[in-house]
Design a protein around this nucleic acid. Structure first.
Lengths: 185, 185
DNA sequence: AAGCCCATGTAATGAGTTACATGATTCG
DNA sequence: CGAATCATGTAACTCATTACATGGGCTT
C-alpha cells in the first residue's frame, strides 16, 4: 500500500472536480473563498499538490495560450481521480481534525492576570468571532440564491461555522458574567 | 528583535510555571490531560521546547537522582521566564488560531454522495463530538472540587469546548432534518 | 518472563509557511 | 507611469509527527 496522502491532496482534487478547467491561480482564489475556513492552504502548497496530482494521474493538465493574459495550465479530474476521490469521501476519519487556539491557550494560563487584562483578551476573541460570523452569514446569503447541490453543501458548512461562532460568543458572555462578580482571582 | 517563538514554547513555559519542579515525563502527561484539547503537542516536541527554554534561561533544570526510578531533570521557571510569560499573555494575537476538520472537508465535497453516506459521515462526527462532550464534562466535574484560580480557568476552557461541541451536535441535527426531506441531491 | 510505568532521547520525514522572483497585460 | 490582476514558481526554513532505541524498576 502506498503511503497515505494528506487530506490537503484530496481537498485540491475535490476542488478540481468541482471547478473543471480552472487554472492554479483560479484554484487558489476559489480555495481561499470556499474551504479555507475549515481547511486553510497557502498558494505554494496548492501548486505543489497540483504537481502531485498530475504526477499520480488523478488530474490532467492542459496548457492554454491566452491573448490578453499569460499562458496557463488548466486542470481536469481523470477517471482514476474520480475513483480515489469517492473512496476518500467514503472513508471515515474521525481523527483528522485539529483545533489550535492562541486565545484559549492564553486564557488557560491567565488565572493570575488582572481581570481587566482577561477582559481585553476576551474582547480580542469576540471581535474575531464577530468577523467570522459576518463572513459566514454573507456566504450563506450569497449561496441562498444558487440552487445547486454544491451550493447547498457550501451553505451548510457555512452554517457549521456560524453555529460554532455563536456558541463561542455566548461562552464569552458567560465568562464575563463571572468576571463581573469578581469571581476571578 | 529576536525571531518570534511559536506559542507552543510559551505553552510549555506556562505549564512549568503552573507545575513547578515537574520532570519532562510528567509534563508530557499534564499537557496531554490539560491543554491538549486546544493545543496538542507531542512528547518529542515538548522535550525540544524544554531544551529551548533552558537554553534561553527562561527555566532552570535540576538533576534529581531517584532510588526507585531513573534519574530525571526537573524544571522551574526563572525570573526572566516569568517576565516573558507575562508579556506573552498580554500580547493580543487574534491570528494565532487554526481549525482543520476532515469531516467538514468531506462534507463540503459530499454534495453528490448518496444521502445514506452523508448520514454515516455525520454519525462519525456525532460520536466524536459526544466523546468530547463527555471529556469536557468530566474535566469540569473534576475541577469543580478544586477552588484554585488555575482550576477556575481550566473549568472555563473546558466549558468553551463543551459549548462548541453542543453547538455542533445541534448543527448535525439541523442538517439531518434537511436530509430527511430529501432536500439533498 | 512478560508487560507496564518511568525517563529521555535520536532519526527521518513531511506538511506547511513566509518571502521573494519573474514577467506579461490591463486600467486609471 | 504606477498599480492591480494574472500566472507560476524557487528557496529556505520550521513546526510537528511517527517510529524507534534504551534502560532500570515494579508488578503479576
Amino acid at each position: 500500500m502506498a503511503a497515505e496522502l494528506p487530506d490537503t491532496t484530496y481537498a485540491v482534487l475535490g476542488l478540481i472536480e468541482k471547478v473543471p478547467g480552472a487554472s492554479g491561480y483560479e484554484l487558489v482564489g476559489v480555495a481561499g473563498r470556499s474551504f479555507a475556513h475549515f481547511w486553510p492552504i497557502s498558494q505554494t502548497l496548492l501548486y505543489r499538490e497540483l504537481d502531485r496530482l498530475t504526477g499520480l494521474g488523478w488530474v490532467a493538465a492542459t496548457r492554454v495560450e491566452q491573448l490578453h493574459a499569460p499562458s496557463k495550465w488548466t486542470y481536469r479530474i481523470t477517471a482514476a481521480g474520480r475513483r480515489v476521490l469517492a473512496d476518500w469521501l467514503a472513508t471515515p476519519t474521525p481523527g483528522a481534525s485539529s483545533f489550535r487556539s492562541g486565545v484559549l491557550l492564553r486564557f488557560f494560563f491567565a488565572y493570575r492576570m488582572h481581570p481587566d487584562q482577561v477582559r481585553s483578551l476576551l474582547n480580542t476573541y469576540r471581535s474575531g468571532l464577530q468577523t467570522q460570523l459576518e463572513e459566514f452569514t454573507a456566504i450563506m446569503d450569497k449561496l441562498a440564491a444558487v440552487s445547486t447541490p454544491a451550493a447547498r453543501a457550501g451553505q451548510l458548512t457555512a452554517l457549521h461555522g456560524l453555529r460554532t461562532a455563536e456558541a463561542r460568543l455566548q461562552w464569552i458572555n458567560e465568562v464575563e458574567a463571572q468576571l463581573g462578580q469578581n469571581d476571578w482571582p
